[in-house]
Structure formats: structure tokens, C-alpha cells
Design a protein around this nucleic acid. Sequence first.
DNA 1: CTGTCCATGTAAGGCGTTACATGATTGT
DNA 2: ACAATCATGTAACGCCTTACATGGACAG
Lengths: 203, 203
Amino acid sequence: MSLKHAILGFLSFTPAPMSGYDLKKAFDHSVRHFWPANQSQIYRTLAALTDEGLVAVDVVEREERLDMKLYQITDNGRAELHRWLSTPLPPQDYREPLLIQVFFGHNLTDTELLAVLQHEAQAIEERLALYAQIYTTSLAMFNQEHGFDPRTLFLRLLTLEFGMISNQAGLDWLRSGIARLQAGDYTPAELHTLLGGNQEDNE
Amino acid sequence: MSLKHAILGFLSFTPAPMSGYDLKKAFDHSVRHFWPANQSQIYRTLAALTDEGLVAVDVVEREERLDMKLYQITDNGRAELHRWLSTPLPPQDYREPLLIQVFFGHNLTDTELLAVLQHEAQAIEERLALYAQIYTTSLAMFNQEHGFDPRTLFLRLLTLEFGMISNQAGLDWLRSGIARLQAGDYTPAELHTLLGGNQEDNE
DNA sequence: CTGTCCATGTAAGGCGTTACATGATTGT
DNA sequence: ACAATCATGTAACGCCTTACATGGACAG
């Protein structure tokens, strides 16, 4: 369950305790592109983490308004975070609804199929433009704010690189599929054009 | 909900009615790489589709053993399938637990991080080898079994192409990240190396 | 005679979503 | 005067997973 560990990750990074509200903002400002989290989920997970002793709460009472709860990571929490971060993940399941549409696309005309594919291509282009913008502004931000550990920065930018590389691959695929559909060219691609340039020893 | 439509897709493809068991096999033999479905889920979804009038059941009673239920798509089902297939998808949420590990990887030593990344790289290599194998055997199968619509074949192979292209992109990313970590080279990548060669008009 | 295939389902739980509800403070 | 921000949560539902349960037919 990655949400738990992402929360622990945020709490491990800042010395200041955070509220559920703070955490929601932290998610939305950084990892939302690969791990969106909504508000109610965060609150429920914080309760679970507290039960497990991985975080500690400090309840700030405020007359008239709801109490504010500030969370800090515990030693157990740090240990659990480290354990999870250093453990390879079990094989993941991927679900790509677009591929279902393509797989059963024989039910559609070329026009209908192309509309779906072009819509998706446009969505990816917009996402890529957004990532590129975030990338450059992050770079600029970190360049002027020195004292930031370069390795930590590197790792964070690496996650953005993944977003760009994999979306670019998806876009290349879409453009190639669109072109072949338009040309009515149904000859299958050659394997070596699909498996990229960098491999030497794929036994 | 893509599972519903994938089931409708299978039922629309074969004239013969299918049981839940048949459908489970159909999933496992074709779309499991981008839409795994387990048995209980299929049975429940078939019940829901029946309630909605999108499929029709034919109950085959067998003394002593559980009844066998054979499903066929209805006209309403076909219409709903066509509607869904030709409608662009709403924006999807992506969740990549590996990126959480990388994002909070400052908590790990190089050795620990590299172990995680290399494990993932190996898993992807295996997946790519599997896809390549499926690709060549599918090609061979369809080459000898003629009378198969080339456009339908093209679309099915296209889903496999996606699997190969996107996994190859992930692998390239991993290898590059691993190399830079090993070299202690934390300089950020240039944007234009991330956004691929085919684009001309990314405004 | 043991296991795999055929063929059906139920039960319980995890993770996530949307919608609803409250109420003070700050900005336009 | 109105909206956004700060800050908390509950309720209900949807999708998926794992584990459990049944039982005939057939192959090694």
C-alpha cells in the first residue's frame, strides 16, 4: 500500500509536523502525477497509521472549530518506511482501457477509431507540455535555492523524466498507429523497431 | 468500467455463446497484459450485465452438478459496446509505486536504491522477452490461418506494440538512472533528450 | 489415486471515489 | 457580499483481490 508509505515519506522529509490538510497539499504539489490521493483517503490512512504506531498525533484544540491534528513520524514509522523503500515491488497489474478500445476496435469504422486515438494523442501532448513546464520551473527553483541536496533533487527530477519518457513513447505509438490506419497499411511492425536501440544482451 | 465492455467485446466477436469460465480463459489468453480479470469478478459482472439487459443467459441444467450458464450479447449490448468503444476516455489516473520509491529515495543508500532499480529492470526485461515471444508466435499463427481480417489482426498486434514500446521506454529510463546513480552524476537531463524525435509542432 | 480441467459461485476485506457536512478566516 | 482557503471528517458505493467451497470428468 503505497499511500501509507508516501505519507511516511513526506513526514520523514520535513521536521515540522503536518496536518492532513498539509499532506493533501504536499501530494497535489509533487507526486499527484504518479500517485493522486484524495482528502478522505488521506484522513483515513492517517488514522490507520496512528493505530499502527507509525505516526504520532498532536491534537491542537481550538474552541468553536474542529481540533487540528498534527502528525509526526515515529521511529517505527521511519523503520517501516526504510523497509518498504528498499524492498523491490511485487509485480504490478496494469490496466489500460485505451488498449481495450483498440483490441475490440474492429467494431468501429476508421473514422470512429481515429477520433478516439487522436483525442488520446492530444491529451498526451498536453500532459507532455505540462511536464516540460514543471521540469523547467523546478530546475530554475532549485538552481537559485541552493543548499538543496543534489542527489535528492536528482531523484525527484528522475520521476518527472519517467513521466516524459513514457508519455513520449505512448505518443509515438499513437502517431504510428494513426498513420498506418489512415494509410490502410496493416502490415505488422518489425520486432527490432519496437525494441529500442540500447540493448545488446537480450538473451 | 472497462471490464463490462471487454466482456461485451469478447461476446461480440464469437457467434458461439460463452460461459464465465470461457470468458476467463479468453481474458487470460489475450488481454490479461493490459486488463487482468479474475474469476469472481467476471461472474459478478456477468450477473450485472444480465440485469442491465446487455447480455442474455441460457441456463443449461445438469443434474448433480451446478448449472452451466451460457451468455450471448443482446442488441442493447452491441449498441452499448459500440457507444463505449467510440467514446474518448475520461482522463485516467496513473499510479506508479516505483516512482514513490524513487521520489523518497533520499532515505536510501546508493546500494539499496540500485538494488530496487535493477530488480525492476530485470522484471521489465523478462516482460519484454515474453511480449516479443507472443508477438512472433501470434504472427506465425495468423499467417498460416488465413481468412482472418487483416485490420482486426493489426489492431490486436497494435496493443502488443504498445506493451513493447512503453516497457522499452521504462527500461531505457531505468538504465539511464542506474548509470547516473553509479557515476554519482546528478546533473539533470536536457529537456530535448526526453521529448522524442518525432515532434515538430509542439507549440 | 492424485491432480488438473471444467464450471460455478460466496464472503470478506482493501483501496479508492464522490458526495455531504461543518465552520472560522482571509482576500476581492 | 462572496468566494476561496484553512481544516476536519462521515457515508455510501464501486471495483478488485484472496480465500473458500463444491463436485464431476479425465489423464497419468
